[in-house]
Design a protein around this nucleic acid. Structure first.
Lengths: 127, 127, 127, 127
DNA sequence: GTGGTCTAGACCACA
DNA sequence: GTGGTCTAGACCACC
């Protein structure tokens, strides 16, 4: 698993981890039913605290992205994970705030989104 | 000034305040050179501490959105405020993370953006 | 009298006024015994509050630069004004702090001082 | 860390703290990458409020002297911190005002500067 | 009236 | 343990 963590970023490490795992799914590197590395081994590989990995996994379980099974964690088999209304509200709030900034600072969001669609596909094909 | 703060939200109050003020500008309710309510009066109106308002104002000054003058704070007269490269990077990161979630949870971002463009204009015209 | 006040500056107006008056003396535009404009007229000319001009004059009296006489204020006849040890200590502190910044931010103070010596003389001769 | 704060001074405590930290760097007592004492521990040691220390640290981060990392604050690794034009203008203003006073009060700045260069080096070598 | 500074104490998120 | 946020209340400088 390829995980990139920026220790200097202001984004909490567990949050970065959450998004890196989701990114793996979006790019098609990980599929429903795949099992994840153990908390201990992943923490060791990345060089971060056990608790941090644990928290990231718990968050993903809470979102329905991962499922905890006997032998550890795996990608949930039911897709797409159902998201709660409150989560969707949070999502919209965040997006709305970003749009406000885009307006205030004159950022071209449409162009950025095009870039990102490409970046999201990433190396989807070489997997 | 119309300010809506959700005390139950996990978003810090000062951050909400920052976005509410920016929203006022984007919607055309406040214009370059307009002066803002004093730290104490706004705090009193909203029912929060003056330090919280102060922090929001300071953040906006740091972003170039507000300017501090002898008699208080006002909307910066130079528009649009130039945004630093590092800030833009942060912006892109946040947007990228949102796009990941949109993919994972099958959210139609394009549709949401249309909604938001309308919401952003808001009551621009009745002012 | 030529007084330049920057209302947008973070330096208090009365402080700017104090320095502008001292600058007039240093440049030889004003001499011992000269009387100053009345508080009211100067405030009117600059467009600031009476209290502000008053405070500046009071500070200068306190420093021995001005003397209050029946008809108003005049430049002290005794030169150079004696300064207290505590004032000199303050002066040294300020200068020391500036030197620290010069070191940290790699500013060439010697060069700046040369510039300033010229600027201080200013239009000394055309008066 | 050696920090000297004058509680009776009219200079704000956080400002004194800012200069004391810079002085530590200039004197070579602290180097790029060194981590600073935690906000709370330093506040406790000096006997001031943690918010006051916090503000000093924030100012230094804003100036590029300190960097905030996950585990706290550290001296920025990139040296020297680049200083903005507006900051340099402020610096020149302050220095100019001091030079005015030096002229008015007949203070020998050149001599003081020599003293200060020695004081700045301080105990650089015994460390 | 305005903002600036400082204190004291609380709760939370992160690692 | 670390910093982030928020509150409450105080005193001061400036205009």
């Amino acid at each position: 698993m390829i995980i990139e963590i920026d220790m200097a970023s202001e984004t909490p490490i567990y949050t970065q981890l959450v998004y890196q795992i989701k990114l793996g799914i979006v790019r098609g590197r990980m599929h429903a039913g795949d099992s994840l590395p153990s908390v201990r081994s992943l923490a060791g590989d990345i060089g971060i605290n056990l608790h941090t990995v644990n928290k990231a996994y718990k968050v993903l379980v809470g979102e329905g992205v991962l499922t905890q099974v006997k032998k550890g964690y795996e990608i949930s088999r039911e897709t797409p994970p159902k998201i709660s209304e409150t989560y969707k509200e949070e999502f919209k709030e965040k997006l709305f705030d970003l749009m406000i900034d885009a307006n205030v600072f004159d950022i071209d969001v449409d162009m950025l989104l095009e870039e990102m669609k490409i970046k999201l596909k990433g190396d989807e094909q070489h997997d």
